[in-house]
């Protein structure tokens, strides 16, 4: 289902994204396509530093909107933003995740790693206890994956829609009865960054389909 564009339901978002990509918007009356050519490889490099701040792809799209297009930022997790990031992400399908290491980014990586290893919630579990220590076992009948975010934004049958990695991370945090980080918060982007770094070299599958 995932590899056949005719049956991958996330392609509906990719097509929306393609339309948005070419549409002029904002006070600058510019479309993404007016400045950018192909976006091959871009999604494989995010999250990344932008003026000393760590941003994920969705936040980077919004920076372009507010700074270049002079348009309001799109709401995180909105259909439009997911469509744009799916459209951009698909252009890196099959390319290895390529998160650069740098001295400047190291504190973010360390912070993301610490969050991955930190026990939290009423159930007092860390990500690593299940997704490293118990990957391949079954949690209530469902195989526990190794937490490699190779296919976001992703279509989950459980959601009946497309969602970001942060939405997926919220699911796990709610599962261990922890208070989830807010969408777009530094904690979430650092965790995303660590996970993408951890999956470096793996091929991007965006937009992937999961149960």
């Amino acid at each position: 289902m995932q590899n056949d564009d005719a049956t991958n339901p996330a392609m509906l978002w990719v097509l929306d994204g393609e339309a948005l990509w070419g549409r002029r918007t904002g006070a600058a009356d510019k479309a993404c396509a007016d400045c950018h050519q192909g976006m091959q490889g871009v999604a494989a490099r995010y999250p990344a530093l932008h003026s000393e701040k760590l941003v994920n792809l969705d936040q980077r799209i919004n920076l372009c909107r507010t700074e270049q297009q002079k348009a309001p930022a799109l709401q995180l997790e909105s259909r439009e933003l997911l469509a744009l990031s799916a459209y951009i992400g698909r252009q890196s399908r099959g390319l290895p995740i390529d998160i650069a290491e740098s001295e400047q980014a190291k504190p973010f990586l360390d912070s993301g790693r610490a969050a991955f290893n930190r026990r939290q919630g009423q159930l007092n579990l860390s990500c690593t206890q299940c997704h490293v220590g118990l990957a391949g076992n079954k949690l209530a009948g469902n195989p526990i994956p190794q937490a490699h975010p190779t296919g976001y934004p992703i279509y989950r049958l459980e959601w009946q829609g497309l969602g970001s990695l942060q939405r997926r991370l919220r699911n796990c945090m709610i599962g261990v009865r922890a208070e989830p980080y807010a969408y777009g918060s530094p904690e979430f982007v650092e965790l995303e960054y660590y996970l993408m770094w951890r999956a470096r070299g793996m091929k991007l599958e965006t937009p992937a389909v999961r149960p």
Binding site: R119, Q120, Q122, N124, R177, E179
Partner: peptide, 14 residues
């Protein structure tokens, strides 16, 4: 999990 513990836990949902 410790089923009768309420202390020493992080970020417990409200």
């Amino acid at each position: 999990p410790a089923y009768f513990r309420t202390e020493g836990l992080a970020r417990v949902a409200p």
